[in-house]
Amino acid sequence: MFEARLGQATILKKILDAIKDLLNEATFDCSDSGIQLQAMDNSHVSLVSLTLRSDGFDKFRCDRNLSMGMNLGSMAKILKCANNEDNVTMKAQDNADTVTIMFESANQEKVSDYEMKLMNLDQEHLGIPETDFSCVVRMPAMEFARICRDLAQFSESVVICCTKEGVKFSASGDVGTANIKLAQTGSVDKEEEAVIIEMQEPVTLTFACRYLNAFTKATPLSTQVQLSMCADVPLVVEYAIKDLGHIRYYLAPKIED
């Protein structure tokens, strides 16, 4: 028996919004430690890794490890039927071929449930090696989204250059060149507005705008985003999900032809 309950459907809606542009379907691996999802986008350029800890749920029970393959378009249709403040509960029997998603209004006067067919998806788990990153940048998630959106107008690629002075995002195309520099913030009243750079050595890497923009669909989940970079390894873009877990996106760099 698997049962996981969250106080607010809005969190699950935001999580789905953060992954459904990259993934058509995905397997949710449930165990007593929580829910894990790892999947590559169709073109195998990026990897999404979602971790939701069992202690972050209002109620969590998972008697046996369970892999639930879900069509994310179908799940989005179901989540559209929930009000943001509704409680949401996911339930499945051991070895079931369906999952039930139930919404309850705060006053318990409206209860709706949706049974969704599960899919057998080919599981291709990738091993992610531990990396000592050259640069780790923490910055406001909204600012990162804005930069990715703005620079996508100029080029298919963004060059991210990180030094101890700051981080520079550049794009160059037919229109010309765009450069956006962010300096490390000295002192800020609000932690969520800070730009913080931890640098071992400077790094310059090129990434596809299209994927960066897809990752920023996670912006509503978190006030800050963390970018971890190292020469010739995938970029890690991490959004914390408060008291519940995190979503990490890995993006392979572009290299010169």
Binding site: H44, L47, E124, H125, L126, P129, A208, A252, K254, D257
Partner: peptide
């Protein structure tokens, strides 16, 4: 050139 994520992370 866009590299594939599988050229960095190997299947388990």
């Amino acid at each position: 050139m866009q590299k594939s994520i599988t050229s960095f992370f190997k299947k388990q």
